[in-house]
């Protein structure tokens, strides 16, 4: 009997995916999102002043690969940095001599590595040029990707967790629980989000973690609303009744049977939410409240580009293009997803 719910889910997800696959825009968007995620994850292998693989004083090591995995949250804590470079304090470039074998990343400059070549226009050495203190812009862009993608995912991850729990609980329990949570949703919807973020980032030190947490804590309301609606609609259906009759507890019913069927509308909101979070982080960093120098983010690269817009406009284009592309990609995925889930928009008329 419990298989009924799962079967239901698989049909739903499979159908949605088949419809989604038919949309070119959505697929292109998904492709861009995947590329951006890969860039974000493997940033140290694409750009950095740490060799991918090298032989230093007769010993082989792979510092950038180790560094990539060291950046993974939780797991990364247990990985020790690759010897002989105590990253990132030791400058690998000056330590390696002629007879050492080195494979550098594609862009052999660190995101915070300064040089005397300041404000150079794009060239074959510095693809996007350099900034005021001679940092390679291409490298900063690549590492900025990590920030934007992390913000989008962590912020919406928190929002999703809260939204699904509260929405699901309200929808499934009904009664006074529903009334209470519905009021809570209404109250939080009225919060001036940007102002909360600004207040917090100013009073606490501005950090990317704070930005993510606040976006997450305030942007869950629409997810909760949709989930509540779906749970209300689904909980009276036969497969839920069947599950209950065969002895499944409320938690099991909610997670195993209701959630897979109710996730679709929330998924659309989450996708758009990631786009919004990226825009929000960019705006905050642009105002100077987000990621702080010398760490790179698309927003703060743009901010420093504005300062010397007159003299060297080359710095403006890469972050603008990147923000636009990333947000556009998420919006395309969200659009296609919504069309795939809601067949009404597909009907042809008049």
């Amino acid at each position: 009997m419990t298989a009924r719910g799962l079967e239901h889910m698989e049909i739903g997800a499979g159908r949605t995916w088949r419809r989604f696959r038919r949309r070119r825009g959505g697929l292109v968007g998904l492709g861009v999102v995947v590329i951006l995620l890969l860039t974000a994850f493997f940033a140290p292998l694409i750009a950095g002043n740490v060799p991918i693989v090298c032989r230093y004083q007769g010993r082989w090591s792979a510092p950038a690969i180790v560094e990539t995995f060291r950046r993974v949250p939780v797991v990364g804590q247990w990985i020790s940095p690759s010897k002989p470079f105590g990253l990132p304090s030791v400058d690998a470039k000056s330590h390696l001599s002629q007879e050492d074998v080195v494979f550098w990343p594609l862009i052999p400059f660190g995101p915070t590595e300064t040089s005397s070549d300041s404000l150079r226009p794009p060239s074959s050495v510095h693809w996007f040029g350099t900034d005021r203190i001679g940092r390679d812009l291409a490298s900063r862009m690549v590492h900025g990707t990590t920030v934007s993608m992390t913000v989008g995912f962590v912020a919406m991850g928190i929002a999703t967790l809260i939204g699904l729990s509260i929405g699901g609980w309200a929808g499934y329990a009904g009664g006074w629980v529903d009334a209470l949570f519905s009021r809570l949703i209404e109250v939080v919807t009225c919060f001036p989000v940007l102002f909360l973020i600004l207040s917090v980032t100013v009073w606490l030190e501005p950090s990317i973690v704070n930005v993510m947490v606040i976006i997450g804590l305030t942007r869950w309301t629409s997810i909760a609303r949709f989930t509540r609606g779906e749970f209300l609609r689904l909980r009276e259906q036969e497969f839920v009744l069947a599950a209950r009759a065969s002895g499944a507890g409320p938690f099991r019913i909610a997670v195993r049977h209701l959630l897979p069927n109710a996730i679709a509308p929330a998924l659309v909101t989450i996708t758009f939410g990631v786009a919004q979070a990226i825009l929000l982080e960019a705006a905050l960093s642009w105002l100077g409240f987000g990621v702080q120098q010398p760490n790179p983010s698309w927003g703060n690269i743009l901010r420093s580009a504005y300062v010397q817009l007159r003299w060297s406009p080359h710095m403006v284009y890469p972050p603008c293009a990147a923000i636009f592309l990333a947000v556009l990609a998420y919006n395309l995925v969200g659009d296609a997803l919504r069309d795939a889930i809601d067949p009404r928009t597909e009907t042809r008329t008049v």
């Binding site: 786009a275 642009w286 743009l302 403006v316 636009f324 556009l328 919006n331 008049v350």
Partner: peptide, 29 residues
């Protein structure tokens, strides 16, 4: 909506996506 799938529809949808995806500080500048 009225001229669905026409060139105007395509252009509008494209512009809508651009409008939603560009940060205001970029448009403004």
């Amino acid at each position: 909506a009225v001229r669905r799938d026409g060139w105007l529809d395509g252009a509008t949808l494209g512009l809508v996506l651009v409008g939603v995806s560009l940060p205001t500080f970029v448009i403004g500048s």
